[in-house]
Nucleic acid binder design. Sequence first.
DNA 1: TTGTACGCGTTATCAC
DNA 2: GTGATAACGCGTACAA
Lengths: 336, 336
Amino acid sequence: MTTIKQVASYAGVSVATVSRVINETGYVHEDTRRKVEEAVKQLNYKPNEVARSLYKKKSRLIGLLLPDITNPYFPLLARGVEDRMQENDFRIIFGNSDEDRQKELDYMDTFIQNNVVGVISSTNNPDTDCYANLKIPVVFLDRTSSDSLSVYADGTHGGRLAAQEMIARGSRQITVLQGPAHIRPAQDRFRGAVEELQRLNITYHVVATTSFSFKEAESWAKELFSKHPDTDGVIASNDIVATAVMHEAHRLGKKIPEDVQIIGFDDIPLSSLLFPPLSTIRQPAYEMGWEAAGLLIQLIEQSQAAKSSMRQLHSSIQLPVKFIERETTRKVDFHG
Amino acid sequence: MTTIKQVASYAGVSVATVSRVINETGYVHEDTRRKVEEAVKQLNYKPNEVARSLYKKKSRLIGLLLPDITNPYFPLLARGVEDRMQENDFRIIFGNSDEDRQKELDYMDTFIQNNVVGVISSTNNPDTDCYANLKIPVVFLDRTSSDSLSVYADGTHGGRLAAQEMIARGSRQITVLQGPAHIRPAQDRFRGAVEELQRLNITYHVVATTSFSFKEAESWAKELFSKHPDTDGVIASNDIVATAVMHEAHRLGKKIPEDVQIIGFDDIPLSSLLFPPLSTIRQPAYEMGWEAAGLLIQLIEQSQAAKSSMRQLHSSIQLPVKFIERETTRKVDFHG
DNA sequence: TTGTACGCGTTATCAC
DNA sequence: GTGATAACGCGTACAA
């Protein structure tokens, strides 16, 4: 690691001057600038981010906290965040929380200790102290918070959409899988679906679930078809659960979509690869990550500039969901 | 952020003393220790990692470089790395390289600038300068390098296994999909499969591929069945490609596994969720990440301790692969 | 056993 | 225009 001092002596100037040309701050004679630039190139000098961070009390690092990167929904979110951050020369410290309060706190602590300038968190506890007391901007991703900024998809509308499409395609005995109670977006979807079903005056049943794990979903799928054998339409809480339902339907010899239609939620990469390919309500995960990063960057730059004036210029971003018609739902001509 | 100075004045001691109790270095009277600990708790003091890093010229950060977290194979690797690092109080700066040389270099630079103490990289260019000139330990993950340490699965054996299982289950017209030439493990698998096929004196065809993208894999799958319509066994370069082959087989009305058997590679989460569930050669991705992290930690600690003596105590780790029998291959009684 | 003072690499504030 | 120099928060000789 070559330091600014070495560059300075190589160029025959003081460190102050080197700093000036590096940061393009203050006047510096054209000739000396060239000398310095030459020295920088020769010595392959790269400023030490740590020293910078220490002095300025802010780094080019942001913290990204996700429940579990192993869950197929999150890689796309992460990639969206990463791409946008990369473009703006921010780096990411990444952690999995497993929706565990303690892990979450630990990560937040180490984020702070490393002088991150912002945090993107996909947490179920956005209103907890560790966020409220934070002195740096936070954006909640895929989770809503009452007073903080967040980026999320329109789950309620998604639920409604799922119900509408199901009905438009002729199912009348709907069973809705209610996602985990502690996951806000899952409840939004559920509520949306149920409201629409009620509005449409359709009978429906509900099967409660507590996670998005495939293993567990398999048993709920069994429960679904044994408790409600006449079900001809399933609105699943996400694509993983929908997949488990498909497997169980196969096992029972039910034809998809003739005997039972299935609609998932998320549109994870898996969905289009299933057989038959899964119809689902698409959340634009990559875009969500991208938008969250963009929002956070704005907040960071704003807090650099006007420390007190004009706060809260920005607001949460709700992204639209979309019905992706594939082959677990029947075709309709009139639909549009 | 409360600093060590504040803790010191709160406790009525010097910063040196506070530092001593924090780091458990040097003598300190029991009474003062308690005073300091009390102050630390009262003020909720957490040492500033940045200052530490600057002084010691080493952080608690490691760099993790993956081709693309969006590729379903990598989240498990990442999780393995993260879990082990977390246990040892290391944090991860994460980046996607897209197998792009420039991005890779950029990330390596910023890793260095942030004083990371080690790097785990899943790169196709392990022998490039940016690694050779590195002053910190590197572990290559899922990629082999001639002189550096790496953690990888036994691809060659995996290929052989795939061929054996295919033959044991009665296929005689094998087509092997040759994975991307620039990806070493893909070539290992391919070589293993072909060698075994030759040894067994079986006719086989090869279809070349250049990526693991599903979109492209679809066209190779078409090519496969049109050029070699009598194929009754496909050894795919990975599970994504195998999935594309399954789709094409479906489309052509071929029964799996009766008309054509298919074996994938990796055992990504998707594989067990397909219909029929995909038989595949499992790479223990999570364990690979875990082992890579463990190895890197050892290297880090070793380089802390004995700066010059006893180097290269450790060696690369090759993890075993395993045939996962699911339903894209036929059953055999005798097999074991 | 404890405190003072310096240095880690940078930036910013002054003089010159 | 340019160069000393203090400061960021911490760890560690060295002195006391």
